[in-house]
Simulated scan of single mutants.
Amino acid sequence: MFDLKKEIFKKFDNVKGIDRIGTDDEMALLEVFEENTELTFDIDFLPKPMMNTYIYDSYFNIYYRDGSSNHIREHRKYEMRFLKVVLKIMGYSHDLYIESEDLERNHGANVVKIPTGEMGNVYLAKHKSSLAKIVLNNLGRKGRSKEKQIDLLMLLKKALRDKTEVTIYLCDLKLILFITDLYISCLAEDERSKKFLESICAVEGLYVR
């Protein structure tokens, strides 16, 4: 049986323990990052980690958890910054995969290549199909089942709202992004790609540290 993740991992030459990423062990990703400290960094909306957890939990973490419209609005301001950074760097990759348990229900696999098909079955907004498009999509090609669309924007938003976890493998850029809440843990084998990602973050007002 073809193992897509093994093929992805082969494209990263110097990441120790990379085959543990995405396993059922919740500590696996943390351990991989700890084993590759010289390759790892984080994207945050804070310039430094905030040690006063009372202040952090009382202010920053209430954006969407208490359901207040004002807090949700504030959260979305930061969320949009992260979305722009992620989508921009993804746009520069031509060998791109995304992993999330959330994909399993709708796509049948938790790791998929982006785009997923010849015509790029990925969309970033509410999908609207004309009657002609619906007919063509349902017909598909003879002998080939229609691939399900991936709402990439919604998947990323769910990760940034701490409702799922998403790992993005940008193989040609030698970058791995792990998204959870308003925070991205990154691993970069290519220093040039890291610098490029830093420049995107600077434009969007996010910190790389």
Rank of each mutant, 00 (worst) to 15 (best):
N106F: 08
N138M: 09
I184R: 00
A132D: 15
E198T: 15
C171G: 03
D181M: 14
S130Y: 09
C201P: 05
Y183L: 13
P115D: 02
L131H: 09
A188D: 08
A125R: 07
V135E: 12
E104Q: 11
D162F: 11
E147H: 00
V135W: 02
G140I: 01
S130W: 08
L153A: 06
N106C: 06
S185C: 15
A159N: 05
S130V: 14
Q149V: 00
Y183E: 00
G205H: 08
A159I: 02
K194A: 10
C171K: 02
E198M: 14
N121T: 14
K142F: 13
L156P: 02
D151P: 05
G143Q: 02
S199F: 13
N121W: 08
L175C: 05
K174H: 06
H127A: 04
E118M: 04
F196R: 15
K194Q: 10
Y183F: 15
K195N: 10
L187T: 07
E204I: 12
N138R: 12
L153E: 12
S185V: 12
L175V: 07
L173Q: 12
M154R: 15
R192H: 06
K174I: 02
L155M: 11
S193M: 07
I168V: 06
N138S: 06
A159V: 03
A132S: 14
H107W: 04
S129I: 00
N110S: 14
C186E: 09
L131K: 11
G140V: 03
R105G: 03
G117P: 01
I114M: 07
L206H: 00
L153M: 14
T116I: 08
L136I: 03
I184P: 00
C186I: 01
G143M: 02
D172S: 03
D172C: 01
K133P: 00
D151F: 11
L136N: 12
P115C: 04
S129A: 08
L182R: 11
L173Y: 04
L131N: 04
S130F: 14
S185H: 05
N121G: 12
N110R: 06
R144A: 08
Y207S: 13
K142I: 10
L182F: 04
R144N: 09
E147S: 13
E204A: 14
L155P: 04
P115I: 03
V135Q: 09
A202V: 11
K148A: 15
L124K: 13
R141C: 05
R144M: 10
I184F: 09
L173F: 03
L177H: 00
T167M: 05
E118H: 09
I200A: 05
L139E: 06
T164G: 04
K157L: 06
K113Q: 13
I200S: 00
Y123M: 00
K128N: 07
L156Y: 07
A202C: 05
K194F: 10
I176D: 01
M154N: 15
E189S: 08
I114K: 13
C201R: 10
G205L: 05
D190V: 09
R105K: 14
K142V: 11
H127E: 12
I176L: 04
L175W: 03
L136W: 01
L187H: 07
K148Q: 10
L139G: 02
A188M: 08
R105C: 00
I184G: 01
S129W: 14
